[in-house]
Amino acid sequence: MALDKFNLDGQTIQYAVCPACHYTYKPLFKCGSKMPRYPDTCMNYPSANLHPNFMCDASLLRDSEPIKTFTYHSFHNYLAGLLTNPNAERVMDAACDNLMSTLSQSPLVTSDVLEAEYLHSFEGPIPNCLFIDRGTEGRYTFSLNVDFFAAEGKSIYNATISCGIISLACLNLPPNIRYKPEHMFLAGVIPGPKEPLLDQLNHYLYSLVDDLDVS
């Protein structure tokens, strides 16, 4: 009841997914209604460059419900939750500060991605200023992971059903905790039964890209 009253549940968006081309459709709501509405058929042009007049036109709904769905979890909710832990925020800020203080000391052996050359030269939002030169701000680096797994488990036969996950890991956290479930961000689970093609995978990443694009 308290979670409901204070609206503390994480924000999610349930997209309708085209079973044929994997195009995703954000729900629409009538004024005053909480019932999501989706198109009946897919209006995507999956091969616009080769066949500009070919519309997918696959059915999206069965009995007024999406045949296939993809639920996206808000990245901003995740980051806000992570920063509510003062110890985590302190460790994440210290990762940038420690790297700034040792820029002139290039390690002979790299034991962590934060020691790699990339962050030693990557500029932040301020021109001619390194990303890790945070001042009083929080500067956080994430790795994007997209991986698929056999939903029915391992088998001596080829897997017939494959699902995928889209996740982020905060590289500012120490390696021994950054990949723990409580610290990682699960953007969503890509529905099976088959893996989407590379260009189709982009449809599942749009919401995450929009969340990360704060300019």
Rank of each mutant, 00 (worst) to 15 (best):
L79D: 00
L79K: 02
L79V: 04
A80E: 11
A80S: 11
A80I: 04
G81H: 06
G81M: 02
G81D: 05
G81I: 03
G81E: 03
G81W: 03
L82M: 08
L82I: 10
L83M: 13
L83R: 08
L83D: 01
L83S: 05
L83P: 02
L83E: 03
L83T: 03
T84M: 15
T84C: 15
T84K: 15
T84L: 15
T84E: 15
T84S: 15
T84W: 13
N85Q: 04
N85V: 01
N85S: 09
N85K: 06
N85D: 11
N85G: 02
P86N: 08
P86Y: 09
P86Q: 07
P86I: 05
P86G: 03
P86V: 06
P86W: 08
N87F: 10
N87D: 08
N87I: 07
N87G: 01
N87W: 04
A88D: 01
A88E: 02
A88F: 14
A88Y: 15
A88R: 11
A88N: 05
A88M: 03
E89L: 09
E89N: 07
E89H: 07
E89W: 09
E89Y: 08
E89R: 11
E89F: 09
E89T: 08
E89Q: 11
R90A: 13
R90M: 07
R90V: 03
R90P: 01
R90E: 06
R90S: 09
R90I: 04
R90H: 12
R90K: 15
V91Q: 05
V91R: 06
V91H: 03
M92S: 08
M92I: 14
M92R: 12
M92F: 12
M92E: 02
M92H: 10
M92W: 12
D93A: 09
D93Q: 08
D93Y: 00
D93N: 10
D93W: 00
A94V: 00
A94I: 00
A94E: 10
A94S: 07
A94P: 01
A94L: 10
A94R: 15
A94C: 00
A94G: 00
A94H: 08
A95D: 00
A95S: 09
A95P: 05
A95Q: 04
C96D: 00
C96N: 10
C96A: 06
C96R: 01
D97S: 14
D97L: 13
D97A: 15
D97Y: 06
D97R: 13
D97H: 06
D97N: 13
N98M: 07
N98Y: 10
N98W: 12
N98A: 09
N98D: 11
N98T: 11
N98V: 01
L99F: 14
L99E: 14
L99G: 10
L99I: 11
M100W: 09
M100R: 14
M100N: 12
M100P: 07
M100E: 14
S101Y: 13
S101A: 15
S101I: 04
T102A: 09
T102Y: 08
T102L: 09
T102V: 10
L103Y: 08
L103N: 06
L103C: 05
S104P: 01
S104H: 14
S104V: 06
S104W: 08
Q105T: 14
Q105H: 12
Q105D: 11
Q105V: 13
Q105L: 12
Q105I: 09
Q105M: 11
Q105G: 04
Q105P: 02
Q105W: 05
S106F: 12
P107I: 05
P107A: 01
P107T: 02
L108I: 07
L108S: 12
L108Q: 13
